[in-house]
Measured scan of single mutants.
Amino acid sequence: IRLYEREDYRGQMIEFTEDCSCLQDRFRFNEIHSLNVLEGSWVLYELSNYRGRQYLLMPGDYRRYQDWGATNARVGSLRRV
């Protein structure tokens, strides 16, 4: 999964292949505005340590956080399923 700091895949990008319990420890931002799921399925959590609202993401492109059903861009952790 590739996470981007801004909409439309702009700004700083980070790629994950494994679970991350605290996004801010690995990426200086806690807001993700766009992403690409390259393979497999992922769950994004609004808070760190896999807490808060959850969003199940299938392979595909998500140009804005609204595309995955979120009401804001906050992402605290993520897990591959």
Rank of each mutant, 00 (worst) to 15 (best):
E18N: 14
R6V: 08
N36V: 05
Q54V: 03
G60K: 11
E5C: 03
L57M: 11
V75T: 03
M58G: 14
I32L: 14
I14M: 13
R74E: 14
F29P: 13
E46Q: 09
F27S: 10
G76Y: 02
R53F: 02
A73Q: 13
N30K: 14
F16C: 08
G52S: 01
F29K: 01
F16L: 13
R74A: 09
R28G: 08
R74H: 06
E46S: 05
L38P: 10
Y45E: 00
A70H: 12
Y65I: 12
C20S: 09
R64F: 12
E7Y: 01
Y65W: 10
G69K: 15
L56A: 12
A70P: 12
E7P: 14
V75Q: 04
L56G: 10
M58V: 11
N72Q: 11
Y50P: 00
Y50A: 01
A73S: 08
E5M: 12
Y4G: 01
L47T: 04
A73I: 01
A70I: 11
W42S: 00
A73N: 12
Q12S: 09
L78A: 10
M13D: 11
Y45D: 00
W42T: 01
V37E: 00
L78W: 09
V37Q: 02
T17G: 10
N30S: 13
Y50I: 01
W42Y: 15
S21K: 07
F16N: 14
R26C: 13
L35T: 08
Y55C: 06
S41I: 03
R63T: 11
G11I: 00
D61S: 08
L38S: 06
C22N: 04
Y55A: 11
Y9M: 13
L47D: 15
W42D: 00
W68S: 12
R64C: 04
W42I: 08
C22R: 07
N72W: 15
R26S: 12
Q24A: 08
W68T: 15
D19F: 10
W68K: 15
P59I: 03
F27H: 02
N49I: 01
E18W: 04
L23H: 00
R63G: 13
W42K: 00
D61P: 07
I32F: 09
G11S: 05
T71G: 09
E5Y: 15
L57E: 00
R64H: 03
R63L: 13
G52A: 01
R79H: 02
I32D: 02
G69L: 14
V37C: 04
R74F: 08
Y50N: 10
D25C: 02
E39I: 08
R64T: 13
R26T: 07
E18C: 12
V37R: 00
S21E: 13
V75H: 01
Q66L: 11
Q24E: 11
F29Y: 15
V75W: 04
E15V: 04
D19P: 09
L78S: 02
Y65T: 06
L47E: 04
G69W: 12
D25P: 13
R63P: 09
